[in-house]
Design a protein around this nucleic acid. Structure first.
Length: 317
DNA sequence: ACTATTTCCTGGATGC
DNA sequence: TGCATCCAGGAAATAG
């Protein structure tokens, strides 16, 4: 179940291996659930785009795409002869409406094959069981494969997701907004303000992606344990001092988990097929009935908002 | 404006 | 051994 540290690990691994590669063609499966944008739009955006960067935003993986208008223009010209309206899909995307006409006119007359980045994005959410794998084209196409990107390097980037909780979408650059603050970047006063006046359990607030983006069930439980706060405590009832502790705990847990490549539970592996090791550092998650590592009390498991929540009844108040 | 609950989905674990 | 049932959970939708 990829949360922030797993997604960060995956994005870093993908960045190493596909940055600069060109998407030559795209195959999308028939199951509609994983597609948040129309299939034709996803394919059209990806095809003939260069992957400029791969990065994590919350639990999303964002591929920043660039398209060389020169390449497209040249292809069209050679195939169809001189066109009065050269197709340059890149020119319109970034510029404002006011200036686009002028620029288009100028570009057309002076440099019809000038490269203009289109600045689109491919956004992948892995859900519970989604994975992105770099394959050779001869590799067996696994069951539950929903998308295959053929790359100019000869490899394929495949999206596989048995449970289909994952989502694929495309957006123009700058249009994608995951909401919430990045937990590793947020400042203390903004962090504490998130919980002011909220009657919901602190655990639920931590899982709310509109407040903080990227914290999931494992890291919420682990952060609350380190901060000594019970998951059912109402967010508004937590003292400033305790929130300060939670602020530090969240960052500490996430940083340690990223350093260890995330937590490998439910067969999570990163882009290189490597397991993470933070599951060995879990102090409460998945340890129901086992002794607290600090006080030896049995770890309790309760359900909050349908999520299992683990805590030490003695260490957490 | 919030908050709580339900729904989606399948593989693996459990129970009889 | 086989078959049914339950469970995992992120986020969107729905209800209050």
């Amino acid at each position: 179940m990829p949360e922030l540290p797993e997604v960060e690990t995956i994005a870093r691994g993908l960045a190493k291996r596909v940055t600069g590669d060109l998407v030559e063609s795209v195959w999308l499966g028939q199951k509609p659930e994983p597609l948040k944008s129309p299939a034709a739009e996803i394919a059209a955006t990806l095809e003939q785009s260069r992957i400029a960067t791969v990065r994590r935003v919350g639990k999303h993986i964002v591929f920043d795409l660039e398209r060389s208008a020169g390449r497209v223009g040249r292809t069209l010209l050679s195939a169809k002869g001189k066109q009065t309206k050269p197709a340059r899909p890149g020119s319109r995307v970034k510029r404002s409406l006011d200036s686009s006409t002028m620029h288009a006119e100028a570009d057309k007359s002076v440099r019809p094959t000038h490269a203009v980045p289109t600045n689109a994005q491919w956004i992948v959410h892995l859900g519970m069981t989604g994975s992105l794998r770099i394959c050779e084209s001869r590799d067996e196409v696994l069951k539950h494969t929903h998308a295959i990107l053929k790359l100019a390097s000869g490899r394929e980037l495949r999206f596989i997701d048995p449970r289909r909780f994952g989502r694929l979408s495309v957006a123009k650059a700058g249009d994608f907004d995951a909401g919430g603050y990045e937990p590793l970047e947020v400042e203390l006063d903004r962090f504490t303000a998130l919980f002011r006046g909220r009657k919901t359990p602190i655990k639920s607030a931590l899982l709310n992606q509109k407040l903080l983006r990227g914290v999931g069930n494992i890291y919420a439980d682990e952060s609350l344990f380190r901060a000594g706060i019970r998951p059912r405590r109402r967010a508004s009832s937590i003292s400033h001092e305790q929130l300060q502790k939670l602020f530090l705990s969240v960052k500490e847990v996430l940083r340690e988990a990223i350093a260890l490549g995330g937590s490998s539970v439910s067969d999570y592996v990163d882009a290189d097929g490597e397991e993470g090791f933070f599951q060995l550092e879990h102090r409460v998650y998945g340890r129901e009935g086992e002794p607290c590592l600090v006080c030896k009390s049995p770890v309790k498991r309760i359900v909050i908002a349908g999520r299992s929540s683990h805590y030490c009844p003695k260490c957490q108040k």
